[in-house]
Design a protein around this nucleic acid. Sequence first.
DNA 1: ACTTGGCACTCAGGAACACAGAGTGCTAGA
DNA 2: TCTAGCACTCTGTGTTCCTGAGTGCCAAGT
Lengths: 337, 337
Amino acid sequence: MLDDRKLAVLRAIVEDYVSTNEPVGSKALAERHNLKVSPATVRNDMAALEDEGYITQPHTSAGRVPTDKGYRLFVDRLSQVKPLSGAERRAIETFLAGAVDLDDVVTRTVRLLAQLTRQVAVVQYPTLTRSTVRHVELVPLSDRRVMLVLITNTGRVEQRAVELPEVVEDARIAHLRAVLNACLDGCGLSSVPELVADLPERLPAEDRPAVATILSVLLETLVERHDEKIVFAGAANLAGADFTIGLRDVLEALEEQVVLMRLLGETSSDTPSALTVRIGSENPYLRGTSVVATGYGSGDNQLARLGVLGPTRMDYPVTMGAVRAVARYVSQILAAS
Amino acid sequence: MLDDRKLAVLRAIVEDYVSTNEPVGSKALAERHNLKVSPATVRNDMAALEDEGYITQPHTSAGRVPTDKGYRLFVDRLSQVKPLSGAERRAIETFLAGAVDLDDVVTRTVRLLAQLTRQVAVVQYPTLTRSTVRHVELVPLSDRRVMLVLITNTGRVEQRAVELPEVVEDARIAHLRAVLNACLDGCGLSSVPELVADLPERLPAEDRPAVATILSVLLETLVERHDEKIVFAGAANLAGADFTIGLRDVLEALEEQVVLMRLLGETSSDTPSALTVRIGSENPYLRGTSVVATGYGSGDNQLARLGVLGPTRMDYPVTMGAVRAVARYVSQILAAS
DNA sequence: ACTTGGCACTCAGGAACACAGAGTGCTAGA
DNA sequence: TCTAGCACTCTGTGTTCCTGAGTGCCAAGT
């Protein structure tokens, strides 16, 4: 049904449309790409492609525009991810290497990705779930308040002030800190709940209320924060782009953590580093936009996801190349620290 | 030159234009506000106001629109800050009270302000400079790396990984931590540099390289971060608004910390809690936008600034009321914790 | 001296219209 | 199966005309 030439025509249509942002006609197509056939032949092929739903025309007498289905075929079979240039690679490397802490890594990553792709970049903070405890710190703030600080092996620091039900001496706090660290150091975050389950019983009865309070805050911190934090950059790139939906909707979605999470999607467990591409209506949460995303993290230790969001009409090969490259570099950086 | 009635006309023009977004003519003006004079009289007044540069007409035969100078006069002399409704106050209070830590306070504040004003809200993190040290923590990560965590009395936590020049035993780290805390606890951040100046000399020679490294990172943390962090929310509200400059420029400015800082401006030292209003071209960094900002923090302890950014055509009384109210509430919350 | 009604004037924005140009589908021939 | 030619269908653009809102000014009224 779709011979090689028809596929070539589709590819040419996608490429031309992406670069010019105008419906592409048979004549221009036959000229710009040397297809070695006449415009009339191209027209026939286009008619076939339209029948199959890969392209469409905005109005009766205009050129053709790819449909979501057309982009899908293009991404799956007609294009290959375009690697970055050497200069770009070096720029990424030096830019990311300058990061001083986890916050900085994430901030730099998201800006970098936005700049490279000229789209909106989205980066999820490394999830706590797969991390391990590096250190738990309890800092007395006043008689009845302590600051709970949780440091993970990915360099992430979570902090929460805890209001104690009664006055607790500093020495007891210090003891509890020692117990907690002995118990949790190096353990996966997901195993924390069971590890602390019997902790109150192993301590003097008088400490139990305070301990219970602290532990409940600790557990809250684990579950509530474990994958909520997510940032974006490059909103300015939306100004030029034209979406089928309103710009307002896109901006609103960007400020909703929950929506952003869904947009990035979930890392498939079997091929964690694969690129996910959602095109237009394939994307149930924000129609009319495309999302290119991937997991990051080194090897078996997948940390979270990152990607970019843009109009359906985007340069998929380049975008995919940038997303993949950035994911690799940031994985390296995080593995090293 | 400008009698009371002319001022009333100007006020009416500003109010009408803000609510309708259309140039306002003499007839509609005389009707809607009961000025008790005829349209012809209003026209004369408008001509005078135009001569003075307070209003202008987009084209020869259209109504009048306030100029930046007109808005300025309106804000300074013709309007008074509009207080929030009781319901709004209660909503603010409960929403902010639910915050669990400093990050959360700032995030909630900026969202709240964006929602109340339907503009872009900008909040600067409490500056370190005026804060005091609550605790310094050194956590050994490996043989030659420690995590430096600085906790301030405002609840802010700064963390940096430090690469040591040589292997240092945990016991020495613990000792250094004790020394640091003894030396710095409760001190203002601005006095930290002098307080640690002679620290290396008071410690064993063998520790000095490590101590020097740690201190340099500590000082870096103080100066580099002391007022850089700033967040915004409500970018979606820009979608409807029409700026004289491009939407792209505004979005770009929002992502540039430095520009945002300049937009918020500096707290005047004599009246720290005063509202600053910059209208259109008065604003050198982003023409065509207006900024309503104020400092926050309790009394003599001014922490940082917050405000909103919007089109020149904004409802200044309401916006000013919201900014002032939110600043007060967030000051309260921070003072309590 | 200020206010008001009247009146001529200006100009943006919309409707109606024609037209050029790009692009198509179809058919007949190579 | 491809190609050339041709009639057809649109969109977008430019032109013209017209209406209506709004103004500025002048002369009369208070």
